[in-house]
Amino acid sequence: MKIKLWWLTFSPLCWAGHFLASYLTTAIYCAKFASPEGDALPVRIAVAVFTIVALSLITFFGVRSLRLHRRGDATLPHDDDTVDDEQRFLGFAALLLAILSGIATLYTALVFVLMETCH
């Protein structure tokens, strides 16, 4: 496989999807369906599922990016005009973005670990 520019966006898009899904589920549940005490258990379960899905996808993209980064003989800092340099660079940037997206996803998930109600 050859990495295209789109590849860089996949992990951050997983974060964005997880973030939006968590936010919208929470906003709708807390506004429309929560009990007066605001017990957020259903949302917490939903976000746990979202998190497993998002982190699995991010891990997939991260591992794949790492493999693509390892391919070829181009040496650091990948600043030559060759296909290997270009691909190793893109693989590395995508790997870093996967790590960042994973951390940001965990940040979001952490809120649902720590908070038990909507309020």
């Binding site: 936010y23 929470t26 807390c30 960042l100 940001a104 940040y107 979001t108 809120v111 109600t117 309020h119």
Partner: peptide
């Protein structure tokens, strides 16, 4: 807004400090 919503955005606001 519900506290839990605020939490989500607070967490993302911390995360952006990393990059």
């Amino acid at each position: 807004l519900p506290g839990i919503t605020i939490g989500i955005f607070s967490a993302a606001s911390q995360a952006v400090a990393i990059p």
